[in-house]
């Protein structure tokens, strides 16, 4: 073998080069071959945070009970006022535990006074956005957030416009498909006098499903 002296670091003469040295077991080894080839690896999702994928929510919402403004309050009314809605939303996580989304909802309201046999219906379309902060507890995701947007409602053929905002909180379970429960409250400001909840927090509860529209990253 040729050697490099520890101090001079120069090439020593061709020292200790046995011309016919026997192979010892210590040198009888097979090559160690290893390469991290991405083609052979499966991408793994982030271990914390939401799956970073666009998701579609479909929710059914109930507003119970509705104390419709201006109609019920002054009367001894036992008509069960309520609202039912369907909501579509697109949500995208923007950070580990934050998400934003856009939503649209159609709501049908039923209200009136039983005494005067005056049962009435109204419909409302609302469009807006929401933001959520999430906490991951094992398979359960808890979240709290806020929603904000504009609305148009039709009462007795008259279109009413306004805005809405409010907090919500809920939980999700699932993976690519998931189940969601949300409770919250919405404050609406409708410019004209409206029978729909206006100027007061309207509590709601909803349940629905979501599906990831792309492969989670």
């Amino acid at each position: 073998m040729r050697a490099i002296a520890p101090l001079a670091l120069g090439l020593a003469a061709s020292l200790a080069t046995p011309a016919a040295a026997q192979v010892s077991d210590a040198w009888a080894v097979a090559p160690v071959v290893h390469r991290a080839d991405p083609d052979t690896l499966a991408p793994q999702p982030d271990e914390r945070g939401l799956d970073r994928a666009l998701r579609l929510h479909v929710r059914f919402e109930s507003h119970l009970p509705v104390e419709a403004n201006g109609i019920d309050r002054a009367e001894d009314d036992d008509l069960f006022d309520f609202g039912l809605g369907g909501r579509l939303a697109l949500e995208i996580p923007i950070a580990g535990l934050l998400s934003v989304g856009a939503e649209g909802e159609y709501t049908w309201w039923h209200y009136g006074t039983e005494i005067s046999d005056d049962e009435r219906n109204a419909t409302m379309l609302s469009f807006g956005g929401f933001a959520r902060i999430h906490a991951l507890l094992g398979a359960v995701r808890l979240f709290a957030g806020a929603h904000l947007g504009g609305l148009v409602a039709w009462e007795d053929g008259e279109a009413l416009r306004g805005f809405y905002a409010g907090p919500h909180a809920g939980m999700q379970v699932g993976g690519r498909w998931g189940y969601e429960l949300v409770v919250g409250a919405t404050l609406r400001t409708i410019r004209d006098q409206a029978a729909l909840p206006n100027g007061a927090l309207d509590p709601f509860a909803s349940m629905g499903f979501f599906v990831l529209l792309e492969d989670p990253r």
Binding site: R2, A3, I4, S14, A16, T17, A19, A20, A21, W27
Partner: peptide, 19 residues
């Protein structure tokens, strides 16, 4: 110290040659 040699296969095994 560090040493280097080159394996030269032979019919009977391996010989060591200069590196």
């Amino acid at each position: 110290e560090v040493y280097c040699a080159r394996e030269v296969p032979t019919g009977a095994g391996v010989q060591l040659a200069a590196c």
